[in-house]
Structures are given as C-alpha cells and as structure tokens.
Amino acid sequence: MSGALTLGSLFDGIGVFPLAARRQGIVPVWASEIEKAPVSITRRHFPGMAHLGDITKLDGGKIPPVHIITFGSPCQNISQIGNRTGITGEKSGLFFEAIRMIEEMRDATGGQFPIIAVWENVMGAFSSGDRMDFKAVLSAFTGSEVPMPASGRWANAGMVRGGVPDLSWRLMDAQHWARPRLARRQRVFIVADFGGRRAGEILFKPRPMLTLPAPCGTGGLPAPRRRSRPCS
C-alpha cells in the first residue's frame, strides 16, 4: 500500500479519532457531525478536513473513499444510565446509518474502501436489549447471523472469523492507556478488517502508550514550555 493512510470520521464530535490518527501519520480527510460547537473546534484543529454534515443525508458511494472509517455512534439508548430502548432507539439506531455508508462505499469502490472500520461505544452495549443488541451490532458488520455465546453473555474480548470482514472486539479502559493516567472510562471497541485477517493484531497486540499532549493555555494555544539554553 503506497501513500499515506486516510481516515473518515462519522459522529465526529470534537475530533478524537482524527487526532489519534494524525499522531500516527494517518490523514483525516472528512468528518460527519451536526453539532456546531464541535465542528468549530475541529475546523480550527483540522483545517484541511472536509465537513460533510448529517450522516442521514450522505451517500457513502459519493464521498471521497478512505482507508479507515471510525465512528462512535450515539449511546443514549444503550448506555446503562440512558433510557435503554436499545440499538434500534431513536439516537443509537443511527449506528445502522454508518453501516449503510460503509456498504455503499465498498460497493462503489469494488470492495477496495474502506479497508478498516473502527466502532467505539459504552460498556452498556454488551447488556442492552437483553444482550441482543451487541449481537445485532456484530451481525450488521459481518452481514451474517452471529450466534450468542453459550454462556448467554458477551466476553470482554472476542473475534468473529472466517468471513469478510475479519472482526475483533475488546473492552478497554482509558486509565490504562495514557501517561499520566486518566480517569476510569470503559469503552467497547470493534475493529473490522475488510482486506485481510488483521483485526486481532490491531486490537490485541500490546503497544507502548502515548504521552498526552501539553494542556492548552489562554486562548486555546499550547501551554508554553521551558526551553533549555543551547550548548555553548
């Protein structure tokens, strides 16, 4: 694969996925977000990233294809502190709009793009809808029926192999993934690899933690850092 990897971010918020991508040399190409305040933030930090607007009005086959699509779809209906109407709820049901866009892009590009999709959401995804919502999420990604585990409960990590995409999921806690240590924040991540069998390597392979960027000072500018004197 030649050239830089590219990324599109759905339900972009304040651009956390684009920020993580940029720190790894991946180029954020476009984002979909409808809230004005987050868009104003990402326009400032990612001036070259296009803003496509409302996901329900987008056609995945008519927007620039990207290697990676990321999305943290709304959690209001599956969160343990939400109304628990489930993955088909008014907000959380927008998950299926992202799946639609991925399918449209793959159809339009002959299955070339995206190569990787990453979904992030709350831990409540494992238990909402009598634990059937996570089954629906996995089945939507794979386009096939994913059986429930014999235990009737979803493990904190797992894989669905043998088809397209190759898929892995994992429950991760932010406090273990940054220095200095962050507050406890558990989230479910799914990696879907449409181009190979790398989902497990991407999600399960140990990697060194990145340091947090310097906090912003007045006016949103990076905080000043003490500079050492040049050697004489």
Results as ranks from 00 to 15, higher is better:
4 A>F: 02
6 T>K: 02
7 L>Y: 03
8 G>C: 09
9 S>E: 14
12 D>V: 02
12 D>R: 03
12 D>P: 06
15 G>A: 07
19 L>T: 14
22 R>I: 00
23 R>C: 13
25 G>P: 02
26 I>M: 10
31 A>K: 10
37 A>W: 14
38 P>M: 02
39 V>R: 03
42 T>D: 03
43 R>L: 09
45 H>I: 06
46 F>W: 08
50 A>H: 08
50 A>S: 12
52 L>R: 10
53 G>I: 07
54 D>A: 06
56 T>I: 01
61 G>Q: 04
62 K>R: 15
63 I>E: 04
68 I>K: 04
68 I>R: 03
69 I>H: 01
71 F>H: 08
72 G>V: 06
73 S>Y: 12
78 I>R: 00
82 G>Y: 07
83 N>R: 13
88 T>Q: 13
92 S>E: 04
93 G>K: 06
93 G>L: 05
93 G>A: 05
94 L>H: 00
100 R>K: 12
100 R>P: 04
101 M>E: 01
101 M>G: 02
102 I>S: 10
106 R>M: 11
106 R>G: 12
107 D>W: 00
110 G>C: 14
110 G>I: 15
113 F>W: 13
114 P>M: 12
114 P>K: 08
115 I>L: 11
115 I>T: 07
116 I>P: 04
124 G>E: 00
126 F>G: 00
128 S>M: 01
129 G>F: 04
131 R>Y: 02
132 M>R: 13
132 M>Q: 13
132 M>H: 09
133 D>Y: 02
136 A>S: 14
137 V>W: 08
137 V>T: 11
142 T>M: 11
142 T>D: 06
145 E>D: 15
145 E>P: 00
145 E>S: 14
146 V>S: 03
147 P>N: 03
151 S>I: 02
152 G>K: 02
153 R>N: 12
154 W>R: 05
156 N>P: 00
158 G>K: 08
161 R>W: 02
163 G>E: 05
163 G>M: 08
164 V>S: 15
166 D>K: 05
166 D>T: 09
168 S>F: 01
172 M>C: 12
174 A>I: 07
175 Q>L: 06
178 A>M: 10
179 R>F: 05
180 P>Y: 00
180 P>R: 05
180 P>N: 06
181 R>L: 04
184 R>I: 11
185 R>Y: 05
185 R>P: 09
185 R>E: 07
186 Q>C: 01
187 R>H: 09
187 R>T: 09
189 F>Y: 15
193 D>C: 04
195 G>N: 11
197 R>A: 15
197 R>W: 05
200 G>E: 13
201 E>C: 00
203 L>F: 04
204 F>T: 11
204 F>N: 14
205 K>N: 13
206 P>L: 01
206 P>V: 09
207 R>H: 03
207 R>K: 10
207 R>L: 11
208 P>N: 09
211 T>I: 06
212 L>P: 01
213 P>R: 07
214 A>W: 03
215 P>H: 02
217 G>H: 06
217 G>V: 07
217 G>T: 06
220 G>E: 10
224 P>H: 11
224 P>Y: 07
226 R>Q: 14
229 R>A: 15
230 P>W: 10
232 S>T: 15
